[in-house]
């Protein structure tokens, strides 16, 4: 648990946020108080909270990668995905709730990148929880203003002629980028292709992995 570690690193090697090493914060005490009040008033149960956290932990970019790989392999599916992202996701068992999911496709001339300038709207059901940088003030401020520079900081250098489309998510609308299928992957299976699809390639701050010829 965060409060009894010794080396300041989590099991996955990431540093814990300073909060966890210091005294109980005001806001943490508010979370405990709100949770206990909701339980006392039977608005929710410990089991519901635990199940929600488990579901959250289970979602990962592998969901989105499966969706992209299917779109690469099945032109009809891709057409349905571009037309109605929410319905096409449900075909693969990924329910995006009442939200409208819009899939945007990268092509030879167009590169898409998604951001939420308001807060952190993110296609969680397809990608899991957003990375910290996605929620950062710097990413949210600058992506709409100087996307090419932001992309270069992520190591993505696009040709001069490539149009960059920035999509600003809203509370009711989520975007996912369908990256362009890498060259030399014609013989790969759908599951092999899914392994090439990185989280960042579906946000637009990265490209899929390439295969050596």
């Amino acid at each position: 648990m965060p409060h009894d570690h010794h080396d300041h690193l989590s099991p996955s090697g990431h540093p814990y946020r300073a909060d966890d090493d210091t005294a109980l914060s005001y806001w943490q005490s508010m979370e405990i108080a709100v949770r206990e009040l909701l339980l006392e008033k039977s608005i929710t149960t410990p089991a519901e909270i635990a199940a929600q956290i488990d579901a959250m932990d289970a979602r990962s970019p592998a969901n989105g990668a499966a969706l992209v790989a299917r779109a690469w392999c099945d032109p009809d599916f891709k057409e349905r995905l571009l037309k109605d992202g929410s319905a096409a996701s449900r075909e693969l068992g990924f329910d995006v709730g009442p939200m409208l999911l819009i899939a945007v496709e990268n092509t030879a001339n167009i590169h898409n990148i998604i951001v939420c300038t308001l807060c952190s709207c993110y296609p969680r059901n397809l990608l899991g929880l957003p990375p910290d940088w996605y929620k950062s003030r710097a990413y949210r401020s600058r992506t709409v203003k100087e996307p090419r520079k932001v992309l270069s900081e992520f190591g993505v250098a696009l040709p001069e002629g490539t149009h960059i489309r920035v999509h600003d998510s809203t509370a009711d609308m989520r975007y996912v980028v369908i990256p362009a299928r890498p060259n030399g992957t014609d013989k790969m299976s759908e599951s092999e292709l899914a392994k090439l699809v990185t989280r960042d390639s579906m946000i637009g701050t990265g490209l899929p992995k390439t295969v050596s010829a």
Binding site: S10, P15, Q52, L129, S136, S141, R142, V150
Partner: peptide, 25 residues
């Protein structure tokens, strides 16, 4: 959106339990 800001920090931390609980609530 559109304001000036510094470089994008790519530090990543594991969500702590209290943060996951806020999300769940």
């Amino acid at each position: 959106g559109g304001q000036d800001a510094g470089p994008i920090c790519d530090d990543q931390h594991d969500f702590s339990l209290w943060e996951k609980r806020v999300d769940a609530l």
